[in-house]
């Protein structure tokens, strides 16, 4: 029970990228994505350079290319959307392999694909080199509303507890001869969900009592403060700043 708790995207390591403070990495990733999104889609070569930049980061972080590519698969729904665009979009059309495709649709598809892939790849790199816990600390450091960070950290802590509870309830149901096999049984499942909600709510109350008993007064105490040196900021800034240079070239050329 409770196996596979640690988030599956993280790949432990000791590379310079792993060692960067989480808020530096978050800011760098965010900056990079912003730059990519604001690059004109016609500057095709610029996207090639961005991809090279990310490949460089992956090399420094010692993330194997195969792993990175496999994790990019979560992008498939967007790809499907992009592939449809040239067929459905309006406007000027070109003939490719005997099919009539929309020119603006082609550009649109390229835009979505290129920017989407780069954004997802950057996020995958971030997630592979940063523990979930550290990500939260980084978000906290970047002044994300503390309530959001608290909610997210409770989700990490209690995800498995609630999962186990759900599993126990399911075992109890099946032990009494119940198998959910169709629409007729949805009522039972809905009741399970209701019971789970009540249990979670009651647990929430008990957890709150335990927190108050240890001095909680509305805000989470700062236990680990993510700190970054100027050198670390500069190191993390290499990615977005280089990308920005590429982007500016893309606008001027």
């Amino acid at each position: 029970m409770g196996a596979g708790h640690a988030h599956r995207l993280y790949r432990p390591g000791h590379s310079p990228v792993h060692a960067l403070p989480p808020h530096c990495k978050l800011a760098a990733t965010f900056g990079f994505v912003l730059v990519v999104v604001s690059t004109p889609r016609e500057a095709v070569w610029a996207f090639g350079l961005y991809a090279l930049l990310l490949a460089g980061v992956a090399a420094v972080a010692r993330i194997p290319a195969g792993l990175l590519l496999r994790r990019l698969l979560i992008e498939i729904p967007f790809v499907a959307f992009a592939v449809l665009m040239p067929f459905v979009a309006e406007g000027e059309r070109v003939e490719v392999l005997g099919m009539s495709l929309s020119v603006s649709g082609l550009w649109g598809a390229w835009n979505v694909l290129a920017k989407g892939t780069l954004g997802v790849a950057a996020s995958v790199l971030l997630a592979s080199t940063t523990e979930l816990r550290a990500l939260l600390l980084g978000l906290q450091r970047l002044r994300l509303p503390p309530l959001l960070v608290q909610i997210a950290s409770f989700m990490i802590r209690y995800g498995d507890v609630i999962g186990d509870e759900l599993r126990r309830m399911s075992v109890a149901r099946r032990s009494r001869g119940f198998e959910a096999s169709g629409i007729r049984h949805w009522g039972v499942l809905a009741k399970t969900a209701g019971a789970l909600f009540i249990r979670s709510y009651e647990r929430g109350e008990r957890v709150y009592l335990a927190m108050v008993s240890r001095g909680y007064a509305g805000s989470m105490p700062v236990i680990d403060e993510a700190v970054a040196t100027r050198g670390q900021w500069a190191y993390a800034a290499v990615l977005p700043v280089t990308a920005l240079a590429v982007c500016l070239m893309g606008w001027t050329l």
């Binding site: 939260l136 950290s153 409770f154 802590r157 209690y158 647990r203 008990r206 957890v207 927190m211 008993s213």
Partner: peptide
């Protein structure tokens, strides 16, 4: 106070 269920008491990651 140490409450009965440690899952209530231990709420941090």
């Amino acid at each position: 106070i140490v409450f009965q269920d440690p899952d209530d008491q231990l709420f941090m990651p």
